[in-house]
Amino acid sequence: MAVQPAMPRSWRRETKPHKFCPGCGHGIALRVLGQAIDQLNIQDRMVFGCDIGCSLLAWDFFNVDTVQTHHGRTTPVIVGLKRARPELVCVAYMGDGGGYAIGAQHLVSAAMRNDRITVILINNTQYAMTGGQMAPTTLPGQKTETSPYGRDPDMTGHPTQGPEMVATITPESAYVARGTISRPKQLHKMVTRALENQIAGRGFSFVEILATCPTNWRTNAKNTWKFIEETMPTHFKVGELKVPEAFQAAAGGEGARADG
């Protein structure tokens, strides 16, 4: 048999190469998710919901039942599904615009209700699919198509602290973390925990993932890494924000810390 690429079993090979741009962080985030699906053996009882925005390009990404929804509305679709079929493992996958702007009320409400779903949110600091407009996560001074002179926090606010917000409004049984595609191993642990927390029926699970967007950042590979590893973490602290006790006990008191 020919040598095979190391794709997760749950990836749908027929749709590869996937539709994301060169250097896009979605590919790594979705590989990590695919590996977690394989490891937890949940491919046949999973529903993957993706949003509008670049995340929609994942509509046929996995060999997993998938629903592509409206902008920001993946959360309620997945909430409705999970409520109807609690035995399924339900993931809402979206971008920062979908999660923190147009769908913010759904994220907040699902988190407050402690809905047993997993929300994975890709933070690449702007609306990528629509051509690089300012997002809730755009950094102060960052130039986008709708902040051509740089984001002015005085006029347009500071970057949304999503996991911090979710951690504040969820009960102790929720899992909340911020990972980055530049640390796939740590990210893998976070995504796995976010799924495990749902499977255990404990509570809402949320992982924000810092992700690259060389196309809209207009960066070469070197500056892409620089932006995600040096610039973004000055505003977005990577690490776990809320870890239910069950995980802490299992790990002998050690969580996947910021440097994990």
């Binding site: 309620p76 679709v77 409705g80 109807a84 759904h106």
Partner: peptide, 26 residues
Amino acid sequence: KTFLQTEDELSAGFTTIGGVLAGKKT
């Protein structure tokens, strides 16, 4: 049977869609 009071009508509509996708009369 169950009920969920959602945060708005957008959510009520989309959760209903979720329930239907799950194969329930919602």
